[in-house]
Design a protein around this nucleic acid. Structure first.
Length: 450
RNA sequence: GUGGCCAUAGCUCAGUUGGUUAGAGCACCGGGUUGUGAUCCCGGGGGUCGCGGGUUCGAGUCCCGUUGGCCACCCCA
C-alpha cells in the first residue's frame, strides 16, 4: 500500500475525471441561472449545533465533526446545505426580495459507509425558493402560490435533466404531498398518530417482498387488494378528470388536494416527467407539503435528487415564518445514470464543455530555422487570448506531432515551415492552407472565431 | 455501526498440485521509416503481487489480521 491514499469514500480526480465533474457542475449552474436563481455559498464547516438543532443528537455519528486543538467549540463539515441556507436567509430576511431564489453547488461530507452512488465527499446542487410570489392573502391564494413555487422548483430540476440529454423515459419525477396524503389517510381510517409508522412502511416498500408489504398495510386496515394500489404507488391524475377514481381505493380526496400542483405541471410543460406516487414520503420530519424524488425510470441506482416543501424551517433557525421549497441533487448518482445511459460525452466534447480544448497546436517542420519560431508563435497566440500548446517531446517527426495535436483535441495545427512561411491545418476537416508566418496568429484567430 | 465478496503494471487480465530473476495486450516514454493525425519496426520505464504477520526448505498461490473497493442492512438531511 502506498504510504498515503485518498481517504475512504473520497475521490482523486485526474484531468478527465475533473472534466466529467465540471460537465455536471456547469449544467447545474446553467439550469439554475436559466430559471432565475442567484448563486450563493456558505462555509464548508459550521458549528456542530447547527445540525443537531434540526436533526437531533443522533445525527452526530453521521458527521465529520472536530474540535480545534486547544479550542472549545465543536464544528462539523457540512452534511447538507439547508441549515446554512436557513441561517443566511434568517439573517437578512427583512431586506431580501420575495420570493428569494437561491442556488449553490459545492462539496458536502457524510461519515457513511461508502457504496455505489454514495461517498463520504460529494458535490451537491441545491436550489431553493423562499417566500411566495404574488403577495397571496386568502388561503386559496396561498395554496396556489405554493403550488406554483413547488412546480417551479421541479421544473428547474427537469430542465437540468433534459439539458443533459435525459428523457421522461429515462428518469421519473415521483411526487407526493404530505398534507394530501395525510388528509386522505385520515378519511381512510388511519389516525394521524399512526401515520408516521405507515410512512415508514411506505418508504421501505421496495425492500420487502410484496406479501410482507401487504401484510404491513393490513395492520392499518387495508385489504391485500387495496395494498396493490400502494404497491404500484402511481396515481393517475389528469387535469381534465379531477374526479379520477380507483376501483378498489377511493383516491378522490387525494387527487383533489394535488390538483393545483398538477395544473402547474401542465402549465410548465413538464407533466410527461411526473408520476404522483403515494410511497414517496422521504425520511425527514420537517417536510410540510409537496415532496419529490427523481429516480432512474427502471429503478436502477439510488435517488438522483430529492426535495420538498419545508415551511417551518426558516423559523426554526431564528427567521420569520417563511414558506420554502427546495431540493438537492448529488453528482455521484447523476454521473452513474449518465454513464448507464451513454450520455456522458466523449473526451473531446468533455474538454469543450470544460473550456479546456486547445485552440491551436504549434509545431515546426523540424528545420532549426523553423523550430526557433515555435515558442514565439505560441507566445503570440497566447497573448491574443488563445489556448495554444506545443510539444515537449524531442522528436520532430511531423506525423507524431500531429498525432499529439489530435490527441490533445486541438482545433488547428500551425506548422512552421520557415521564418517566413507556415501551414495551417484544420484538425477537424484536415484542410491545409499556406499562410505567411507573420499572418499566422491573425488567421488562426479568424478560424477559431468562426 | 453489522454481514458477505474481492485485491497481480496506469487499464483489462494470465500466472500449473506452493518451485528459479512475475507475464501479455493496451496505455505511456524514447528512437527509426513514410512531409501529415494511420500502419509498421526497434528500444525503454514502470510491480517489494494492497499492507503486516504466520505456516513452509520455498508463498502471487495456504492461514490470520489490517487497509481499501464492491454488495446488502442501518441511514439517506
Amino acid at each position: 500500500m502506498p504510504p498515503f491514499q485518498a481517504p475512504k469514500g473520497t475521490r482523486d480526480l485526474y484531468p478527465l475525471d475533473a472534466a466529467r465533474r465540471r460537465f455536471i457542475t456547469e449544467a447545474w449552474r446553467a439550469a439554475s441561472i436559466r430559471h432565475g436563481f442567484d448563486e450563493i455559498d456558505g462555509p464548508t464547516f459550521e458549528p456542530l449545533g447547527l445540525y443537531t438543532v434540526k436533526s437531533g443528537e443522533g445525527i452526530v455519528s453521521e458527521l465529520f465533526s472536530f474540535r480545534r486543538a486547544g479550542g472549545e467549540d465543536d464544528y462539523a463539515l457540512r452534511p447538507e446545505f439547508t441549515p446554512t441556507l436557513a441561517r443566511m436567509y434568517a439573517a437578512k430576511a427583512g431586506s431580501l426580495p420575495r420570493p428569494t431564489k437561491w442556488f449553490m453547488a459545492g462539496p458536502f461530507f457524510r461519515a457513511e459507509r461508502p457504496q455505489r452512488g454514495r461517498l463520504r465527499e460529494f458535490l451537491q446542487w441545491n436550489a431553493d425558493f423562499l417566500g411566495l410570489g404574488g403577495d397571496p392573502k386568502t388561503p386559496e391564494e396561498v395554496e396556489a402560490a405554493k403550488a406554483a413555487a413547488d412546480a417551479e422548483i421541479i421544473a428547474t430540476c427537469v430542465s437540468l435533466l433534459a439539458s443533459l440529454g435525459l428523457k421522461p423515459t429515462d428518469v421519473r419525477i415521483r411526487v407526493n404531498h404530505r398534507y394530501a396524503l395525510s388528509a386522505w389517510l385520515t378519511t381512510q381510517g388511519v389516525a394521524p398518530e399512526r401515520q408516521p409508522d405507515l410512512f415508514k412502511l411506505l418508504d421501505q416498500r421496495g425492500k420487502m417482498p410484496e406479501a410482507q408489504f401487504a401484510a404491513g398495510l393490513g395492520a392499518f386496515g387495508f385489504s391485500p387488494q387495496q395494498a396493490e394500489v400502494f404497491q404500484k404507488g402511481v396515481v393517475r391524475i389528469t387535469t381534465d378528470d379531477p374526479q379520477a377514481r380507483d376501483s378498489v381505493l377511493d383516491l378522490t380526496l387525494f387527487s383533489h388536494a394535488v390538483l393545483p400542483l398538477a395544473n402547474q405541471f401542465a402549465q410548465m410543460g413538464i407533466v410527461d416527467w411526473i408520476d404522483f406516487d403515494l410511497t414517496i414520503v422521504r425520511g425527514l420530519a420537517y417536510y410540510t407539503g409537496m415532496v419529490f424524488e427523481v429516480h432512474e425510470a427502471g429503478g436502477a441506482e439510488r435517488a438522483i435528487a430529492g426535495g420538498g416543501r419545508y415551511d417551518g424551517l426558516v423559523e426554526l433557525f431564528g427567521g420569520p415564518a417563511t414558506p420554502a421549497v427546495g431540493f438537492g441533487m448529488g453528482d455521484v448518482v447523476l454521473a452513474l445514470v449518465l454513464q448507464d445511459k451513454g450520455l456522458m460525452p466523449p473526451d473531446a466534447s468533455l474538454l469543450e464543455a470544460a473550456g479546456q480544448r486547445p485552440d491551436v497546436f504549434v509545431l515546426s517542420n523540424g528545420t532549426p530555422q523553423a523550430e526557433v519560431w515555435v515558442r514565439p508563435i505560441v507566445a503570440q497566440l497566447r497573448a491574443a487570448g488563445l489556448h495554444a500548446r506545443h510539444t515537449y517531446k524531442a522528436t520532430r517527426n511531423i506525423g507524431k506531432l500531429l498525432k499529439e495535436a489530435g490527441d490533445a483535441h486541438a482545433r488547428v495545427a500551425v506548422i512552421i515551415e520557415s521564418p517566413q512561411q507556415a501551414t495551417l491545418k484544420d484538425l477537424g476537416t484536415g484542410v491545409q492552407t499556406p499562410v505567411p508566418l507573420a499572418e499566422a496568429c491573425r488567421t488562426v484567430q479568424g478560424l477559431i472565431a468562426r
